[in-house]
Design a protein around this nucleic acid. Structure first.
Lengths: 351, 351
DNA sequence: ACGTTTGCCGCAAACGTTTGCACAAGCGCG
DNA sequence: CGCGCTTGTGCAAACGTTTGCGGCAAACGT
């Protein structure tokens, strides 16, 4: 036999549907119908009102676990992030979270550390947890995983990534256009020997930026030096640094760098400095993403701004549409990037 | 190796305990016992083996929702972060996630935007979602919320924050010691007029750093100028900038600043620059946290390093202990900070 | 030989919902 | 006045687990 207070506390903790049904003088089933928007019409308006009042009085909140068991929905969505320490992602996450919250969904975030195996594990774990859908910024999705998703029919949208065949809905910025703006800026400043130190081409961001670079160069009548078009294995500072070192040590001549993203650009800063090269004095650098703080680096970074928050929000939006209205083709949402000129680029000093 | 992938994928959709039991030729109840570490001893070793094999063959993963319904546990913990865009937090989150994953728990992260109301909402929402415990970096916990937590008896640990009465377990760095190191450095460099531009004193981080500053100054025989000890409303760049402006415009003389955290220090950079003051030429600045990228700012920031990742990990550790072994007093885990000298501090130019 | 323990395991009742189905009024209509 | 139809509600069976209880052998003690 429990002490009264303990029982009270316990019941306060867990006020169940049965309790509100009892208070309202109806059957739990009826209470359930009254509480749910969609089924409320099935019950007498007056009764519904009574149930709502009772629920309110008791401070009833449905147990999502029980509900989920019955409905196979968790009102939860998995969010896969490749590297949460990349400042690019927090704003995106914020966008996703805001939009999802608003619709009553809760994001469950996992950090895959850019590791395919870990990605797979997180993915499975989340599916086991019955997430209703996925938003992923890690588009290294191998086909096995893709099939798994498709086979189960769980909605998935990509954020800041795309897949080649455009079979998956996505919210991204126009990467090709973005780096063309970078190339244009550099060309306008008089640079002709421009290196591209990009990210892995298995990722759309890596591939499209590289393509954009090549195209942009050709448009300006410049010939990209194949030895100066490198692709790193990850979008990290270290990789940027490594690539930049290699470029310098290759002996090829260049006066500007278009980096795969801001992190890689930052790596270039380091490599340049280690070789006694000044930025932008000797070499101009432009990044990509305009991630938070890139205006505070040394020098302030010239980069391509993409609307982080909106991209996240849009991705969530896409997913919600999928969740609530079923598949409607795969929408490819692409937002416009803009050029932000700061201190890491300078006009070429003609000698 | 792997069985036929298609079948694997299909069956993974929903292979239930009943299926496993059937394949193993036992009752579902028995299968359940065999599958769970703690109850495995209740079933014949050979039978258990058979069940395990069956589970493996079918690729069985228990449905956490159903399990949670029965056991009142979700194997999920709520993580409350005040500002996910502050680079300090991602590494902490990573630490939390790593440790939690390892124990089979999933973190559910919410970003409270430093807003008390939103904090309350997130808190409630998570409780409704049956999280087993909380890790929170937002210690603005008002008493109502605290009572709520205590009343329900749901475990909670603070990360990078503490409460005055030490009634709540926490994992933090030694804030007092940290800023004393900052003061010592500055004093060693010859500075006597040092400003402290800190964060809100409702937060332990704000309060303790301020106290550490006063104590550190006194130890060095310096008298803090009350007009130069300011406390901002938030730990943000903007607040740092505002405070620094005010300090400069106050007309009081100072040659160094101890900032509440790296973000605020960055704000000081901006304010100083706007007033044509050089850092560290005219004014030295030291931050706090050594958050990612503070080595790449202009100038590279002198700051106090705290072990972000370990703090997160330790917090998770504390919570797990609470979860699995019940309350054992409130452990206050405090880790040691270290001084990182970079370019934002310089010896005072004696005139 | 006969209780009694012991070790395994099956049975079924939960956990808090949702939902198909049945059923009871009430009502209009022929 | 009975027929069918609508509207509102109750009933009970799920959803996939865990777990107390009891049963049934086999092993044991005397």
């Amino acid at each position: 036999m429990l002490p009264v207070t303990a029982r009270n506390a316990k019941e306060q903790l867990r006020v169940t549907l049965r309790d509100v049904a009892r208070l309202a003088g109806v059957h739990p089933g009826t209470a359930s119908r009254a509480l749910n928007e969609q089924t409320r019409s099935l019950v007498n308006a007056e009764t519904a009102q009574r149930v709502l009042a009772a629920a309110d009085e008791l401070g009833y909140h449905p147990n999502p676990i029980a509900r989920g068991l019955k409905t196979n929905r968790s009102y939860t969505v998995g969010v896969l992030i490749p590297d949460i320490e990349n400042p690019l992602f927090p704003p995106i996450i914020r966008g996703i979270e805001d939009r999802l919250d608003q619709a009553g969904y809760t994001p469950v975030i996992a950090n895959t550390e850019n590791d395919a195996e870990r990605e797979r594990i997180d993915f499975r774990a989340m599916r086991a947890r019955q997430v209703d859908g996925f938003i992923t910024a890690t588009a290294r999705l191998d086909h096995e995983l893709l099939d798994e998703v498709a086979g189960v029919g769980v909605p998935l949208v990509l954020v800041n990534r795309r897949v080649e065949d455009e079979s998956l809905p996505s919210a991204t910025a126009d990467d090709r256009a973005g780096v063309r703006m970078a190339v244009d800026l550099l060309a306008d400043l008089g640079h002709e020997h421009i290196a591209f130190l990009g990210g892995p081409t298995e990722l759309s961001t890596g591939l499209q930026r590289k393509e954009g670079f090549i195209a942009g160069m050709q448009d300006r009548g410049l010939k990209p030096d194949p030895a100066l078009v490198a692709t790193g294995e990850r979008f990290t500072l270290d990789e940027g640094q490594r690539l930049c070192h290699e470029a310098i040590e290759s002996g090829r001549q260049f006066t500007a760098i278009v980096a795969g993203n801001d992190l890689m650009a930052l790596g270039c800063y380091d490599a340049l400095a280690e070789h006694g090269l000044a930025c932008p004095g000797d070499v101009s650098v432009v990044g990509y993403n305009d991630m938070p703080f890139s205006d505070h680096f040394n020098p302030p970074m010239t980069t391509i701004r993409i609307p982080h928050y909106e991209i996240g929000r849009s991705a969530a939006d896409l997913l919600l549409r999928l969740l609530e209205q079923g598949p409607d083709g795969s929408t490819q949402l692409v937002l416009e990037p803009t050029l932000v000129v700061r201190g890491s680029t300078a006009a070429l000093d003609k000698k």
